[in-house]
C-alpha cells in the first residue's frame, strides 16, 4: 500500500517537475548564450567597432559595411513585403470564395512558409542575380529575403483581419458602404496594429537570415558602402545604392566565426551582441503591438 503511494506521488509530480525543469533549462540556455557572447565580445564594443570596415587585424575590424548593408536590406524588404503581403492577405481573407482555388492558394502559402530559406537563395541566384542581371546587389538581396518572409506577413495579415468582428463590417455595409470602402475605412484600420506586428515579426526573422544571402553571393568581406540614397544634386535622391554589392551583419559574424584566430571570435561575439539587441528589440516591438491589438479587439 505504501509502495503504491510512492509511485503515485512520483507520477503526480512527474510533469510539474519535469516541465518546470525543461522550461528552466531551455530559457537557461538562452541566458548562458547571452552571457557567453557578452563575455567574449564586450571588449570590442566601442564606437570604432561601428564605424570601422572589416580588417585583417581583429582589433581594428568593425561592422560599418555590415550594419549599413543590413539597414539597406531591411528597409527595402519592408517596402516590398508590406504591400504585397497585406494585399495577398486581404485577397485570401476578404475576397477569395471558398473552393478549390482558395484551398490551393492556402496550401501553397503554408508550404512556402516551410521551404528552407537556403532554397530561396538558389531561387534568388538564378532569377534575380542571373536572369534579371541584378548581380549580387542590394536589390537582389532584398528581393530574395522578401520572398523568404512573405508567408509570415500573409499569415499575420489574415489572422488580424479574421479578428475584426463581423458587427463592424455589418455596420459599414448597412450604411451603404461597398466592400472596398468597408475594408479600406473600417476593417484595415482596425486590423492595422495586428498587421504591423506581423510585418515587424517578419523583419526580426529577416535580419537574422544568412543562408539565402550567402547563396545569392553576398560578399563576406566588403570595405565600402552602397551609394547613399541622398545626393546634393537634383532630385536629391538616388537609387544607385540598389545596384551596389553589400554584406549584412550575420554574414559578417559568420565570416569572423569561420576564422581560426581567437581575435576574430571576439569580433564575432561583439557583432552578435549588436545583432541580438536589434533582433530582440524588433521582436519585442512585434509582441507589444500584438498584445495591444488583442486588447483593442477585446474592447469591441
Amino acid at each position: 500500500m505504501k509502495e503504491k503511494k510512492l509511485i503515485n506521488k512520483i507520477r503526480d509530480n512527474f510533469f510539474p517537475v519535469a516541465g518546470l525543469l525543461a522550461t528552466i533549462i531551455s530559457l537557461g540556455i538562452l541566458f548562458v548564450l547571452i552571457i557567453d557572447v557578452l563575455k567574449d565580445g564586450y571588449m570590442r564594443l566601442n564606437l570604432q567597432f561601428l564605424t570601422n570596415y572589416p580588417s585583417r587585424i581583429p582589433e581594428k575590424a568593425g561592422i560599418l559595411s555590415a550594419w549599413v548593408g543590413t539597414l539597406w536590406i531591411m528597409v527595402l524588404t519592408a517596402l516590398f513585403i508590406f504591400p504585397v503581403g497585406v494585399a495577398s492577405g486581404i485577397y485570401l481573407e476578404e475576397y477569395a470564395k471558398p473552393g478549390k482555388m482558395k484551398d490551393f492558394l492556402e496550401i501553397n502559402i503554408s508550404n512556402l512558409a516551410g521551404v528552407p530559406s537556403i532554397i530561396y537563395g538558389l531561387l534568388g541566384l538564378q532569377i534575380f542575380v542571373y536572369f534579371f542581371k541584378l548581380d549580387r546587389s542590394v536589390l537582389a538581396g532584398a528581393l530574395t529575403l522578401s520572398l523568404v518572409v512573405l508567408p509570415i506577413v500573409i499569415v499575420a495579415t489574415r489572422e488580424s483581419l479574421k479578428a475584426v468582428p463581423l458587427s463592424l463590417r455589418e455596420a459599414s455595409f448597412a450604411l451603404g458602404a461597398n466592400k472596398l470602402q468597408t475594408i479600406l475605412f473600417q476593417v484595415l484600420p482596425s486590423a492595422f496594429s495586428g498587421i504591423l506586428s506581423g510585418v515587424i515579426l517578419s523583419m526580426s526573422r529577416a535580419i537574422g537570415e544568412t543562408a539565402p544571402l550567402i547563396t545569392i553571393g553576398a560578399l563576406t568581406y566588403i570595405a565600402f558602402l552602397p551609394a547613399g540614397p541622398f545626393t546634393t544634386e537634383f532630385p536629391f535622391i538616388t537609387l544607385q545604392g540598389l545596384k551596389d554589392y553589400f554584406t549584412v551583419l550575420p554574414i559578417q559574424v559568420f565570416n569572423w566565426v569561420s576564422r581560426p584566430q581567437k581575435g576574430f571570435h571576439s569580433d564575432a561575439a561583439a557583432g552578435i551582441i549588436i545583432l541580438l539587441i536589434i533582433s530582440l528589440f524588433i521582436n519585442f516591438m512585434a509582441i507589444y503591438l500584438r498584445i495591444k491589438f488583442e486588447k483593442y479587439m477585446r474592447r469591441k
Partner: peptide, 10 residues
Amino acid sequence: MVFQKPNPFP
C-alpha cells in the same frame, strides 16, 4: 439598420 448590440466604429 440598427443592430442588436451597439456596434460603433472604432
